[in-house]
Write a protein that binds this DNA or RNA. Structure first.
Length: 1133
RNA sequence: AGGGCUAUAGCUCAGUUGGUUAGAGCGCUACACUGAUAAUGUAGAGGUCUCCAGUUCAAAUCUGGAUAGCCCUACCA
């Protein structure tokens, strides 16, 4: 017996199947049964278990899961090792919050040991919740043996990868892992550098008002600059704008755009009235001068005047001409001045980042305090400015210290905080208080070095913890020389199949094209320690690539330095920091205190998850690179990048061949989900309410996964009702009648398709067309297309055409061949559908499969047939079978559907109910094949629309009125401008015009004096009307309905009405479908003819043994139509 | 600020290489149909395809620009 159900409750289906999977180890079996050498490699991007899973995780993991399942069905072995991301700032921040400490307290209030212990116990806090959601959503991933990034083995593999990079050299002999410094966001108030992540925390970028200053840099008169001077004593200045006047003492260069045009303007200094000539970008002149004042006499100016008289002295100086000009240092700090700086610095250099959107088109350049400045001056070979560093003359100490104060050596401003915000409130609330930026500006003004001082509003980053502005400051860092592999990475990227493609070419591709070195250092505590040990002078260093070599280095050091160190069980800080190694020359070496970027952890997972190369070399070989990965699009610069970068640099390979980046899950209105807005969707609740499958299906089918999803439970309900509800009903229908007939699928007695009806062969053809479409879409990682194809098949074709039209076959008569064919056809459709949908809807599909196969499972197992598998997820994906696809048949059926639809619309218009039979429909013949095609599906049409016969109308009858429309595609090319008029002409063609064209094969038309020859292909001809008939048309097909009524037809209609009413009564009274009944009808004039002529028909339809007429009937009166009410009584025998 | 993505009916989305009257589902209205249905059928209402300009005989579709939303990257002085 097939199981029958009252209602569909998807969460119960989930529970039943989940239990079955766990009891029978279905996931494990699905992997193990496939051969290791035929692997489809999937990498799990590790989630962090220190936060609760959200609905967006269901989205991302559905994408991962379904392609893994799909490829399992295709016969691949898809090992799915789970993983946990356990390091990183979010974890540290959470711990700090819970311990009530800040980073500064680490090592003071709590030891590093305690701190890291706290991190370790926090990272897996929500593991149980994660495991639970994983099971509930049906995400198959190996959670028993996941990789965990804090484990020693994992760290060791990371070290190995780092050592590979350390040992790898560029063509110019530079290591891929190096120590340098960069200009990084730094919070003097917190005393710490800030990560990009911290800078991107909400609210970090704030609109602030700073003093902006246009400073005047005095050009030296030399041979090179002579051409810009009109006179020897001319005071020539370059104008440069800054929003950070505190960086002016650190100025070493001015950057101009090589292709920007500059102008030299003769004017006066607004604050002193002194005559000066200034150079600035031509496009910016109007920002500082008013055209009305041009050529006014300079001597008319008095200080305080708003209007600046000026005249243009030179108007098209290319930026490149200015390069090399030397100028006098603006604000000298004698202690920082060196001969080298004097020789090489204080020059105009060139930079392509310069724009003329604001400022003067000249960028004041202070390399220690700006990333662009740093790059530009480095490229120009300009030394840094600062207090001499005896250890490293090339890297003097900045003029601003780590507290954010000018060093004492800076004249006038030494000891002052550079930003007002760094002072305490008491200081700043003093009325006399002036921010340093303002004081500097005033100083410049007084010294005739300022051109304009004003307030300026802009976005500036702030430290999330102290809320004070961030400085850009030179900090030591370890880098991976990613820029050296830029081209190779870009090349490899082109071989990756990105979904959507634009992420690969755009977002990711452009990122690669502008790749900078990867700053690896993090001044944190809980993470993978950088395995580099250095001597104090930095002269010697070693990069450790394995625990074993670390051990032997320790032994070496113990001997050389007389120590007795052992390696702790934990490779984290603080233990690792205590390890002292010995250099080749016998000096002690200490570990560089940095941790590495957590993204390096996760980017190393292809190797580290297997503890490669220390173990599992074979396994790794079979599992690299990945065939498929998937994560949110926000990972583009994160995991996608680090995977790619490491694989490219260390293995000269891609890390993944196909990648799906899914979009965000937003709330119903399109807002980002956030706790503060209270619009977060709880995945547990959603799945408990609607089931995992409906949720998963909705997320995949509603929109492409890479688009953002506006999450609306209404959409899940729609999926549940339309897809799962329909499929459930179809199954239930099958089970109900199969049980009544005692039908069981028999794989050894499958009726040949040739012997089945047109309708059977049609749905089989549709089914195998679906198989082909589905596989094509899935192979292209286009799950949305695949889902929509299934939806259409189930709803449109299977349920609302095949089953609807086949109902009689199932409940009429004995189990004969036709009935068996109907069962087998429906069975096959359900079976294949179950398999196709199993990737996205793993629970329901398995439930359906198991219900369908339960009655024959023992036989199937004994005889080893395709249905022997306990689970759909253990089966082999159905292969496309072109022999089962009959496109002509599909076309015929499409005709039938359209003809029925048109006929029904006429009935509707004429208020002729479908139970009332009509004599005939008339069909104008479209082409030679048309009659044969329609004849093939004639019976279906006649029964569906309850009409006795079809009559074909050809031209010869003269009844047709034809219409013609221009075929714009073919005619447009020929006619060009005359197209519009031609279309109008053709629309007015008469029957005879059209007939002439059809018969002779061509016709001449004249438009604006030009004659064109048109052929039948240039027209779309349709039959528009059959004058005198009730007609409906969809543009191509036309249907006319004969609505003449005869007594016979009326009686038959009434008989069918009676059958319907009696069936309703049966249903109301909850009779079994097989119950035999006695029917008593009230003797009423309206039904006499029907009962007389269709006595047997009625009896057969309603399973009545007796049908009698009586004057009085006990049952209630039933409405037959608006007027007639008849008493009907139905009783079980 | 830069880069990327998106913009089509009240809602969620289709719309192939430019080509006839821009489609579907949901929702709404009315009427049917039902011996599987949480269904279904028919009809109706609902669109300046975000805006502007250009290319073209012809633009939702191609080009340029603008606007809005989102993501990423950001001290562009």
């Amino acid at each position: 017996m097939y199981r029958e159900f009252k209602h569909l409750h998807l969460p119960s289906v989930d529970a039943e199947i989940r239990q079955f999977w766990e009891d029978e180890r279905i996931f494990e079996k699905s992997v193990e049964q496939r051969p290791t050498e035929n692997s489809f490699v999937f990498y799990e991007g590790p989630p962090s278990a220190n936060g609760k899973p959200g609905i967006h995780h269901v989205m991302a993991r559905t994408v991962k899961d379904l392609f893994c399942r799909y490829n399992t069905l295709k016969g691949f072995r898809v090992d799915r090792k789970g993983g946990w991301d356990t390091h990183g700032l979010p974890i540290e921040l959470q711990v700090e919050k819970e311990l009530g400490i800040t980073k500064e307290d680490i090592g003071k209030k709590v030891t590093v040991e305690e701190y890291n212990q706290a991190c370790r116990s926090t990272v897996m806090r929500y593991k149980d919740l994660w495991d639970d959601i994983t099971r509930r959503m049906g995400y198959w991933v190996d959670l028993d043996d996941p990789y965990i990034t804090f484990k020693n083995e994992y760290i060791e593999s990371c070290w190995w990868v780092l050592q590979q990079l350390y040992n790898k050299k560029t063509t110019s002999g530079e290591s891929f892992l190096y120590k340098g410094f960069t200009i990084q966001p730094y919070s003097p108030a917190a005393g710490t550098g800030l990560s990009t992540h911290e800078l991107n925390m909400p609210g970090c970028y704030k609109e602030v008002t700073d003093f902006s200053t246009v400073a005047m840099f005095k050009v030296r008169r030399e041979d090179a600059s002579a051409k810009f001077f009109d006179a020897d004593d001319e005071d020539l200045r370059i104008l440069a704008w800054t929003t950070t006047p505190w960086t002016l003492p650190s100025n070493v260069a001015l950057t101009v755009g090589p292709n920007i045009e500059y102008a030299k303007i003769k004017t006066v200094s607004p604050y002193t009235g002194a005559h000066v000539s200034v150079i600035l970008a031509k496009d910016r002149v109007s920002a500082y001068f008013n055209a009305d004042d041009e050529n006014n006499v300079l001597s008319t100016f008095t200080v305080g005047d708003k209007k600046l008289p000026y005249s243009v002295a030179q108007s098209s100086i290319k930026g490149s001409e200015l390069v090399g000009l030397r100028y006098e240092q603006l604000m000298p700090t004698p202690a920082a001045t060196t001969p080298e700086l004097e020789a090489k610095g204080f020059r105009v250099i060139s930079g392509d980042f310069v724009t003329t959107e604001d400022g003067t088109g000249v960028v004041h350049t202070a390399p220690y305090f700006g990333a662009d400045d740093f790059r530009a001056s480095k490229a120009a070979g300009i030394p840094f400015i600062g207090i001499p560093n005896p250890k490293n003359p090339e890297l003097p100490f900045p003029l601003v210290d780590k507290q954010g104060k000018f060093v004492e050596e800076v004249p006038e401003f030494g000891g002052r905080y550079v930003k007002a915000e760094y002072y305490s409130k008491e200081v700043t609330s003093d009325k006399e208080f002036k921010p340093t930026d303002l004081l500097i500006s005033l100083r410049l003004k007084e010294d005739n070095k300022a051109f304009k001082i004003e307030k300026y509003k802009h976005n500036y980053p702030h430290c999330w913890r102290t809320d004070k502005p961030v400085l850009y400051y030179p900090l030591d860092s370890w880098f991976i020389r990613a820029s050296a592999a830029r081209e190779r990475m870009s090349e490899l990227n082109k071989t990756i199949n990105w979904k959507p493609a634009s992420t690969g070419t755009g977002r990711f591709g452009q990122w690669l094209d502008n790749l900078q070195d990867w700053n690896l250092s993090r001044s944190r505590y809980w993470g993978v320690p950088l395995p580099v040990w250095r001597t104090e002078d930095g002269e010697e260093e070693v990069c450790i690539g394995s625990v074993e070599s670390l051990r032997s280095e320790i032994t070496k050091a113990n001997t050389a330095l007389g120590l007795s160190q052992t390696l702790a069980d934990d490779l984290h800080r603080p233990y690792i920091d205590e390890v002292i190694l010995v250099s080749a020359s016998g000096k002690p070496m200490r570990r560089e205190l940095d941790l590495i970027d957590v993204w390096f952890d996760s980017g190393s997972m292809p190797y580290a998850q297997w503890h490669y190369p220390f173990e599992n070399q074979e396994v790794f070989k079979n599992n690299f690179p990945a065939n498929f990965i998937a994560e949110g699009v926000d990972q583009t610069r994160g995991w996608f990048y680090t995977l790619h970068a490491i694989a490219a640099m260390v293995f000269d390979s891609v890390a993944f061949k196909n990648v799906v980046s899914n979009g965000l899950v937003l709330d119903k209105e399109g807002n980002k989900m956030s706790k503060s807005k209270g619009n977060v969707v709880d995945p547990f609740e959603t799945i408990a309410e609607y089931g995992a499958d409906a949720t998963r299906w909705y997320m995949m089918a509603n929109a492409n996964p890479w688009d953002n999803l506006k999450f609306d439970t209404g959409g899940i309900i729609e999926v549940r009702n339309k897809l799962f509800g329909t499929l459930f009903n179809t199954y239930n229908f099958f089970a109900l009648y199969a049980n009544l007939d005692g039908f069981k699928m028999d794989e050894f007695k499958v009726l040949p398709y040739n012997n089945r009806t047109e309708l059977d062969r049609w749905i089989i053809s549709k089914l195998y067309s679906l198989v082909a479409d589905y596989r094509e879409a899935m192979d292209d990682y286009d799950v949305t297309r695949a889902c929509r194809a299934i939806e259409e098949f189930v709803d449109e074709h299977l349920s609302n055409w095949f089953v609807r039209l086949s109902r009689r076959r199932f409940w009429k008569g004995e189990l004969n061949d036709d009935k068996t064919a109907a069962y087998q056809t429906l069975f096959e459709c359900l079976m294949v559908t179950s398999q196709l949908m199993s990737s996205v809807a793993p629970f329901f599909s398995d439930w359906l499969y198991r219900n369908l196969t339960a009655p024959i499972k023992d036989v199937a197992k004994a005889k080893n047939t395709p249905l022997r598998h306990d689970s759909i997820h253990l089966s082999d994906l159905i292969v496309p079978d072109a022999s089962k696809i009959d496109k002509d048949l599909e076309k015929r059926m499409a005709y039938a559907q359209r003809i029925c639809s048109l006929a029904l619309s006429i009935r509707k218009k004429e208020k002729l109910r479908v139970r009332l039979p009509l004599q005939k429909i008339l069909l104008p013949v479209l082409d030679a094949a048309f009659i044969a095609e329609v004849e093939g599906v004639k019976d279906l049409i006649l029964s569906e629309i309850n009409v006795k016969q079809i009559e074909y109308i050809t031209d010869a009858t003269g009844l047709l009125k034809k219409g013609a429309k221009a075929n714009f595609k073919t005619l447009g090319a020929k006619l060009g401008k005359d197209m519009k008029d031609a279309a109008a002409l053709i629309a007015n063609f008469s029957n005879s015009d059209i007939n002439e064209l059809e018969q002779s094969g061509w016709l001449k038309i004249l438009i604006h004096g030009t004659e064109y020859t048109i052929t039948p292909e240039d027209l779309v001809i349709s039959t528009e009307d059959l004058p005198g008939w009730k007609v409906a048309s969809d543009g191509e097909l036309t249907v006319a309905l004969d609505i003449h009524m005869t007594p016979e037809l009326l009686a038959e209609g009434t008989a069918r009405d009676l059958v319907n009413r009696i069936q309703n009564i049966r249903k109301d009274k909850d009779f079994n479908v097989t119950d035999r009944v006695t029917v008593t009808l009230e003797r009423h004039n309206a039904i006499l003819a029907a009962v007389e002529q269709f006595h047997d028909y009625i009896k057969a339809e309603v399973l009545a043994t007796d049908l009698v007429l009586a004057d009085e009937v006990e049952g209630e009166k039933v409405e037959l139509d608006d007027v007639v009410k008849v008493g009907i009584e139905v009783s079980v025998n």
